[in-house]
Computed example of a mutant assay.
Amino acid sequence: MADSLSVNFDSSIKSEFSTEQAHKTTHEAKHSPSNIQKAIAEVVGTYILIFAGCGAALVNEKLPLTIVGIAMVSGLGLTVATYSVGHVSGGHFNPAVTIALAAVRKVQFKLVPIYVLCQMMGATLAPLTLKVLYHDKADIGVTVTKYLSSTSDLEAIVWEFITTSILMLTIRGVATDHRGSKDLTGVAIGISVLINVIIAGPITGASMNPARSLGPAIVSGDYKNIWVYIISPILGAVSASTLYKFLEVNKPVKPEPCHCNICNHNHLPF
């Protein structure tokens, strides 16, 4: 008799928990952004990022900002994009980031082509806008990421690999890890870009983003060494994202309140 009551009691708890979890999942689904909203956010966010970075490069031709000024604009541009629409799509704005997060199953694979396409749209529209607005006042070609003639292909690959790895580790630490400070996500990621641009900008342009390089290349028609800026950031981001898996810990499971009307205890999920 006691065993039967225990079985019924356990079944009741499991049933209550399953129902509550189902309601919670349904509630989250109703209030989550749609794929269309995520796609639009990626276009807008990438546009802001590239508009800021390329705009700074154009201004530097007329009014010297120095590498520090360009780095600050680039970092702040990413910070603005992250806080404005990052909560809608996750704030990737970078094909390398999207692919790297998908590689560790932080992003659904079906979203990868959608995100990459939207990022390319934003990255192409931004320099195109600048080209139209600047007319002949500046050469849009200065927005294309290139490395010095004294820099070999291998050295350029290493530079882009390292800088993108630093960016990706920052993203994984503050944005995808439950232990990270979410309030400072945009600031931390923006600072990582600022540091990378100051150090690597004079050598390779510190792209860290295939869209950042491809967009201006499409608008200007200059595709020299573009393969370096596509392959290296992706390799760097995937490597850093995979490395961070060894630093992660599982999020602790919070006890669910009991709704069985029998006791006042909290029950852990079954």
Rank of each mutant, 00 (worst) to 15 (best):
V7A: 13
N8M: 15
F9I: 14
D10N: 14
D10E: 12
S11L: 15
S12P: 05
S12Q: 15
I13F: 03
I13L: 04
S15M: 15
S15D: 12
E16M: 04
E16P: 06
E16Q: 12
F17G: 07
T19L: 03
T19Q: 06
T19N: 04
E20P: 07
Q21D: 10
Q21S: 13
H23F: 10
K24Y: 06
H31T: 11
H31Y: 04
S32F: 03
P33I: 04
P33F: 09
S34M: 05
N35W: 09
N35C: 14
I36L: 15
Q37G: 12
Q37V: 01
K38E: 02
A39T: 13
I40C: 13
I40V: 15
E42A: 08
E42C: 06
V43A: 04
V43R: 02
Y47P: 12
Y47H: 08
I48E: 02
L49F: 11
L49P: 08
L49S: 01
A52N: 12
A52I: 03
A56E: 02
A56Q: 04
A56F: 03
L58R: 06
L58T: 00
V59P: 10
V59S: 10
L63N: 12
L63W: 10
P64H: 14
L65D: 04
T66Q: 15
I67A: 11
V68C: 14
G69N: 06
A71I: 12
A71H: 10
A71D: 01
M72P: 02
M72G: 14
M72K: 11
V73P: 01
L76S: 02
G77C: 08
L78Q: 00
L78C: 00
T79K: 00
A81R: 11
Y83M: 14
Y83A: 10
S84K: 09
G86W: 02
G86H: 09
H87F: 07
V88F: 01
V88W: 08
V88Q: 05
V88D: 01
S89G: 05
F93G: 10
F93M: 07
V97Q: 02
T98P: 09
I99A: 05
I99M: 07
A100L: 05
A102V: 12
A102K: 12
A102D: 07
A102N: 07
A102M: 10
A103Q: 04
A103L: 11
V104I: 13
V104K: 04
V107N: 01
Q108G: 00
Q108I: 07
Q108V: 01
F109D: 04
K110V: 03
V112G: 00
V112S: 04
P113T: 00
V116N: 03
L117Y: 05
Q119F: 06
M121I: 15
M121H: 06
G122P: 09
A123C: 01
T124R: 00
A126I: 00
P127N: 12
